[in-house]
Amino acid sequence: MPVNPEAVGRQYGPSEVYEVTRVKIREFADAVDARSFAHRDVAAARAEGYDDLVAPSTFAVIIAQRAEFHVVVDPEVGVDFTKVVHADERFTHHRPIVAGDEITTTIHIDKITQRAGISMVTTRAELADAEGDPVTTVLSTLAVREDA
């Protein structure tokens, strides 16, 4: 089943709260070779002006991809996950993510374009903190190959 272009405008969430932990920030920093001590040591993070460990700049993908899963499994959108390639990604930080943040995410299907047997599905994840203030906007486009 091809991707349904009428799914544009759908939204999912707000999701359950994602708690940002020091352990996960350290683990992610190691995985992407982010070398600052501000990702690992609380005193170093405070010396940089943060309340706690600060997350590397693509850390939000962990939270966004959990939310994007709702789009991929929605039968009315029709994405075949075995035929998906990641086309693009963008993070816009309204403020840095720090350990202790409690993040809630709402995901929107912003755009679906179809051409030459490929559907491009663009989602926008809006991450907000416990006060409801915006933290990060994550735009992501999946390219889905359609059967001929």
């Binding site: 992610f28 995985a31 992407v32 070779d33 982010a34 070398r35 600052s36 501000a38 990702h39 993070a45 940089e48 943060y50 600060v54 997350a55 590397p56 700049s57 693509t58 993908v61 390639v85 990641h86 086309a87 693009d88 990604e89 963008r90 993070f91 816009t92 930080h93 840095p96 720090v98 735009l139």
Partner: peptide, 24 residues
């Protein structure tokens, strides 16, 4: 993308990359 961001962030300062985008 994460490894590329780390190279920028090491120069920019931790938490000081306001926006980062790429195509794969």
């Amino acid at each position: 993308m994460g490894a590329a961001a780390s190279v920028v962030e090491e120069w920019a300062g931790p938490g000081n990359v306001a926006d980062f985008q790429t195509r794969f």
